[in-house]
């Protein structure tokens, strides 16, 4: 796994972005940027050569699921690995995210171990 990959963290709560950023740094990923909802994130993704997207679901403006759909609908971003980190835990929502093309799904509250596990799993699969 390339530890220098460029990661975009999208969450409307700055504290959650800081937590994820710190956890990622602990895992060796230091090249991170932040956005507070899908509307801010999408143009960044479209122009920024990101390698990985970590997004919340419930955000004002554009939600994470809409961002995921927009990413999958963009020919340049269609293969971008996306990890959803969210408090939404209804079965049908998880299925909805899976159908929209999410690569991993972590429910809040989560642990550093879970985050690491899901990230390595995603890149194992992407790499293979």
């Amino acid at each position: 796994m390339n530890k220098n990959m460029k990661i975009l963290i999208v969450d409307d709560f700055s504290t959650m972005r800081r937590i994820i950023k710190n956890l990622l740094r602990d895992l060796g990923f230091t090249n991170t940027q932040e956005a507070d909802d899908g509307n801010t994130a999408l143009p960044m993704l479209q122009s920024g050569n990101f390698d990985f997207l970590v997004t919340d679901w419930n955000m004002p403006g554009m939600t994470g699921i809409d961002l995921l759909r927009a990413v999958r609908a963009d020919p340049n971003l269609v293969k971008l690995p996306v990890l959803m980190v969210t408090a939404e835990s209804k079965r049908e929502q998880i299925i909805e995210a899976a159908q929209a093309g999410v690569n991993g799904y972590v429910v809040k509250p989560f642990t550093a171990v879970t985050l690491e596990e899901k990230i390595s799993k995603i890149f194992e699969r992407v790499g293979s």
């Binding site: 679901w57 419930n58 939600t63 408090a87 939404e88 835990s89 209804k90 079965r91 049908e92 929502q93 998880i94 972590v106 429910v107 809040k108 509250p109 989560f110 879970t114």
Partner: peptide, 19 residues
């Protein structure tokens, strides 16, 4: 509707029980 975090004792539909 987005339900947000699971809260013990409140019916929020068919939710998962942890990771």
């Amino acid at each position: 509707k987005l339900e947000g975090p699971v809260i013990p004792g409140i019916d929020q539909g068919d939710t998962v029980n942890g990771q």
